[in-house]
Amino acid sequence: MAVTLPEEMMLLSLDDESGQAKDGLMLGLPLSGAIVLELAFAGRVTLADGQVRVVDTRPTGVELLDGRLAALAAWTEGRRRTKIGDWLMKDQRTSVRAAEESLCRRGLVTEEKHKVLGLIPVRRYPEVDGSVERELRERLTDAVLRGEEADDRTAALIALLQAGLLHRIAFPGVPRREVEPRMKAFTEGHGVAESIRAAVGAMYAAVAAAMVATAAGAV
């Protein structure tokens, strides 16, 4: 079974040594967006005019996606307005936890629990199998830094990372001022398949807008 976009994003975020997420406060919105985008690719939801609609509730066979599909279907039922950004804001924390659990089930990371100062519970996810992340980072490097062709799923992941301002987890050794314009240029210039272009564009816009709204609310 192929690793999904949210799982790839989660792998990028986890520190290989500590098992803790880097840029954890910024991860939730784009990762939740990655789940919805996967559901759109699978024909379970549609994304148009800033709205998300569930059009098929059949399971995809991927536990991570099916759990969020059921929750999204329950949330949209009976609503007149189903703004993508509203769902991302609501579901971001749950989506991150679901992605962590999915990586554990796959055996790519292991969960460790402990308490800080004997009171605050903390979970860590040290990597077990690093081959998936290494291949992923090579694909990102080829596409963004070397200017090579990339498949549509890699292009979609880069768009979400760009929208979520997650340049540091994608390219930890490259200064942001160097990698950000390259990611932007790739996102704008990559000709993804017509069948997914609208979905990627809608999710990029929704994540970027939600990031701005979150930042404004924190001021």
Rank of each mutant, 00 (worst) to 15 (best):
M1G: 14
A40H: 01
D15M: 06
G189L: 05
L65Q: 03
V3C: 09
G19F: 02
L37V: 05
R168I: 00
G191V: 07
L65E: 04
D152I: 00
T4H: 09
E138M: 12
D23S: 13
M10A: 15
L72G: 03
P30G: 10
G78Y: 04
R134D: 13
E17A: 15
E7H: 07
A159N: 05
A73I: 03
L145I: 06
L25E: 15
V36Q: 07
R153P: 02
I35Y: 04
G130W: 10
D16W: 02
T141V: 10
L65F: 09
D142F: 08
R44C: 14
K184W: 08
G28R: 05
D16K: 14
E17C: 06
R197W: 06
A209Y: 05
K115L: 13
T187M: 10
R97P: 01
K22R: 14
W75I: 01
S95N: 08
V200K: 04
Y204I: 01
K184T: 12
T94E: 13
T214E: 14
T187A: 15
M89F: 14
L136N: 08
A210G: 07
L47G: 06
K83T: 12
A199R: 02
S13G: 07
A206T: 03
A198R: 15
L37S: 02
L65C: 02
L108M: 06
E17P: 05
A206P: 02
D16V: 09
M1I: 11
V52L: 12
R58W: 10
G19K: 01
V3N: 02
A34H: 08
V45N: 05
E149P: 08
K113W: 08
F171A: 11
D15S: 13
A42H: 11
T154W: 08
T214V: 14
L108E: 04
R93A: 15
D142A: 15
S131H: 10
W75T: 08
D86Y: 12
R93Q: 14
I158W: 03
D23I: 02
I84A: 11
L140A: 07
G191S: 11
A218L: 11
D23W: 00
V132S: 04
E101C: 09
E112G: 06
E111R: 14
R105L: 12
L29H: 01
A155R: 06
A98L: 12
H167E: 14
D86N: 13
L140R: 08
R153E: 12
P30W: 01
L117M: 13
L103T: 00
H114N: 14
V36G: 04
R123I: 01
L69G: 04
S95R: 03
H167N: 14
L25Q: 11
A34L: 01
D91V: 11
L27E: 07
R58F: 07
R105I: 00
A205F: 10
V192P: 00
G61D: 06
L157Q: 08
D91A: 15
D142E: 15
L140C: 07
R139V: 10
A205M: 09
E135S: 13
T4Y: 04
E77K: 15
V144G: 01
G164T: 03
W87L: 07
R44N: 13
R134G: 05
S131M: 07
G173E: 14
S95Q: 04
A159G: 09
V144S: 04
H114K: 14
R80P: 00
L88A: 04
E112D: 09
H190W: 15
D23R: 13
R44H: 11
R68W: 12
R124Y: 02
R81E: 12
G201K: 05
